[in-house]
Simulated scan of single mutants.
Amino acid sequence: MATPYTEDCISFTGIFGEPVGFPIFTDPQNPFLRLHELGSGMKSGEIIKSLYEPGNYLYLQRDFGARAFFSGHAFVPLDETLQAMANIYQKNQQCLYEDRARIKINLDALECTFVAATMSRPLFLRHPITGIITKHEHPYPAFPTIRLRTADPIMVASKACYQLSTSLQKRPNLLLQFEDAQEYFYRNPPIRWFSRANRPVIPKPPLIPAPPSATASSLLPAHCIVRPAMSTTTPSTQDRRLRKRQRDTAPSGECPPTKRSRGAPCIPLRRNPPRAAKNNGRKM
């Protein structure tokens, strides 16, 4: 079984931290989104809700996420996924608006290839199990497939059409077929489907924290129980050490360290004689 690399295993710097959820689309009026809404069997306005759902998010390292949606490179679903989506689009072309079928893709098995159509910086890949980091130079011939954690494959493929639009020689044939099937609905949409009238103004989807990854926990043996680290010292030993540390670090006062009676007040030592004594000494 191949190692399930996820999108948060990629970095430009080789420094890996907690991933962040970056929205794939932020504008509900984006033509690729509207085509997806129409071709995939959604109702008008339904795509707005999907902008805030997990299907619109890629969980990426911050340095990679800041550049992941630039033109010239993209995540592209595998051929069988692209073919299944294109088939539904083509079927919906022959149906009435109310008879369109919804696209159903197994998100648990969604994998993508990373396509770089233009020269790009080296990429660092962290192994999800061992944590070993490897460096990959463009065009990344040894780069593995990437399993997306929650992203909708049509969102990813629609974004890839935009990101690779200026690099025809690097676009997979099935991605071109998928785009052609999408554009049919742009030429033959229902009346006022692409009109901006009566469209509410909504805030852009924000960056969100990534949900915990199930990769590491799923690979632990069933009998393995993780316990918190226990101290090797006994409570009495800890108490003696604590009392000694408190005595050693207690702030020193002005009182002399000599023994005194319990009722005697603490009188500070006077290091300099009073001013009156100084003046009498000068007169004498």
Rank of each mutant, 00 (worst) to 15 (best):
Y140H: 09
Y140G: 04
P141W: 07
A142D: 14
A142V: 00
P144L: 02
P144I: 08
T145L: 14
T145S: 13
L148Y: 10
R149K: 15
T150I: 07
A151D: 07
D152F: 13
D152H: 14
D152M: 08
D152Q: 09
P153E: 09
I154M: 07
M155P: 00
M155I: 04
M155V: 07
S158I: 08
S158P: 08
S158E: 12
K159F: 05
A160D: 06
A160N: 03
A160R: 00
A160G: 07
Y162V: 01
L164V: 10
S165R: 13
S167G: 02
S167C: 08
Q169C: 01
K170H: 01
P172Y: 07
P172F: 05
P172M: 04
L174S: 01
L174G: 00
L176Q: 04
L176N: 09
L176R: 02
F178R: 04
F178L: 11
E179T: 11
E179R: 03
D180F: 02
A181I: 05
A181T: 09
Q182K: 05
E183K: 10
Y184Q: 07
Y184N: 05
R187M: 14
R187L: 11
P189Y: 04
P190T: 02
I191S: 13
I191F: 06
R192H: 12
R192I: 08
R192V: 08
F194D: 01
F194S: 04
S195T: 10
R196T: 12
R196C: 09
R196H: 10
A197V: 00
A197C: 11
R199W: 13
V201W: 02
P203K: 12
P203Q: 12
P203W: 11
P205I: 07
P205M: 03
P206G: 06
L207Q: 14
L207S: 12
I208Y: 06
I208A: 11
I208G: 10
A210N: 00
P211A: 05
P212K: 04
A214G: 13
A214W: 06
T215L: 04
T215W: 00
A216K: 08
A216N: 04
S218V: 07
P221N: 01
A222I: 12
A222P: 00
H223R: 02
H223P: 08
C224V: 15
C224D: 15
I225H: 09
V226S: 01
V226E: 08
R227N: 11
R227D: 11
R227S: 07
P228D: 14
A229G: 08
M230R: 14
M230Y: 02
M230E: 14
M230F: 03
S231Q: 06
S231V: 05
T232Y: 13
T233M: 01
T234F: 11
P235A: 00
P235T: 02
S236E: 10
S236D: 09
S236F: 01
S236W: 03
D239L: 14
R240L: 13
L242R: 15
L242T: 06
R243Q: 11
R243G: 00
K244G: 05
K244L: 10
K244T: 09
R247H: 08
D248A: 12
A250H: 04
A250K: 09
S252H: 03
G253F: 03
E254M: 13
E254K: 02
E254Y: 06
P256E: 15
P257M: 06
P257W: 06
T258F: 15
T258E: 13
K259W: 15
R260W: 10
R260Y: 06
R260T: 13
